[in-house]
Amino acid sequence: MKNNTLTQIDGVLVGHFTDSRRPTGCTVVLTPGGAVAGVDVRGAAPGTRETDLLSPSNWVQHVHGLVLSGGSAYGLDAAAGVMQWLEERGHGLAVGAVRVPIVPAAVVFDLLVDDFSQGGSRIRPDAQAGYQACVNASTAPVAQGNVGAGAGATVGKMNGPDCAMKGGVGSAALTVNGITVAALVVCNALGDVVDPLTGQLLAGARRAPDSRELLDIRTAQLSGHVMPHVPIASNTTIGVVATDAVLTKPQAQRLAQVAHDGLARSIRPVHTPLDGDTLFALGTGTSGQAADMMLLSTLAAEVTAMAVVQAVKAATELRLGPHWWPAMKP
């Protein structure tokens, strides 16, 4: 089977941990041999870890893993388990006799996706979840939909959380002139998801909790409709774009920046005051080819948009007590 997901990049492994107690989990992207990395945070409500060290002006050159997690700020604990897994195998930044794995992370808010019968928001990814995601990691095509950090992801919450639809994990890859660029996205957006190639509205805010009819947030806002129930801090799309080209840190940062164009093409509105949209970029250099930044920029935006679309296409509906989050797939 052809692999059109993030693990098409040589040197990259992906693993999910999906909690069986309520819809939440984490997704790890492992680069045990090290990868040049960058990041760009566009949303106004981010939850992140170790992003400052990715600045081109800072010393550390490589990361050994990335964590995308549910659980809001609590989910950042998953990175500790990833560090442990990497340390046990001798991966990390050599500091004398010690190796310190570099593992940045970003989170989405999914604490309210629950029936509140088993502990509700107290169930969230922790260090053990991060460790197990590493155990599950492989180079196989990435599982998509209601898995890992996308287990509790929802989209289209501007008409209230009860009118949202199911989001999830999506991934896509493209190869041009011998260079591959791929993306993995956890889509938990406040806005609607659209197909950028056709303009078709795929998933998002519904008109009523018991209806499948889509509201179309953009059209509603432009016509003066006021969204009275916008939930605070319940959103965010996070992800990773990676290439096998040889990158410098400034080039990795630029790749993370332009990848956000893919979010803007497929999510509306995006980068809102209530989203924490964050994208990482990785360069493994395994192709041995120097970066053609014009080509890489085009591909980064393209695969990011494709991954967003895949996230809602792969998602399946979720019912918890009286709550219902329909999906494109029933």
Rank of each mutant, 00 (worst) to 15 (best):
N3A: 02
G11N: 06
V14Q: 10
T18Y: 02
S20G: 12
T24K: 00
C26F: 06
T27E: 13
G34H: 04
A35H: 08
G43A: 08
E50K: 00
T51R: 05
L68K: 02
G70N: 10
A73S: 13
A73M: 07
L76V: 05
A80G: 11
G81W: 13
M83Q: 14
L93M: 14
V95T: 09
A97N: 13
I102Q: 09
I102C: 06
A106P: 04
D115I: 05
F116M: 12
G120L: 12
I123W: 12
R124N: 09
Y131R: 13
Q132C: 06
C134N: 07
V135M: 12
A137H: 01
T139I: 01
G150M: 03
K157Q: 09
N159P: 01
G160P: 01
D162Q: 13
G168L: 00
S171E: 05
A173K: 03
T175F: 07
T175G: 07
V176K: 06
I179M: 04
V181P: 10
A182W: 01
A189Q: 04
P209G: 00
L222V: 06
H225P: 00
H229L: 11
I232T: 06
T236E: 08
A242Y: 08
Q251N: 10
L255H: 03
A259L: 05
R265H: 09
R268T: 15
R268E: 15
H271Q: 11
L282A: 04
G285R: 01
L296P: 09
V303H: 04
A307G: 07
Q310N: 15
W325H: 13
A327Y: 10
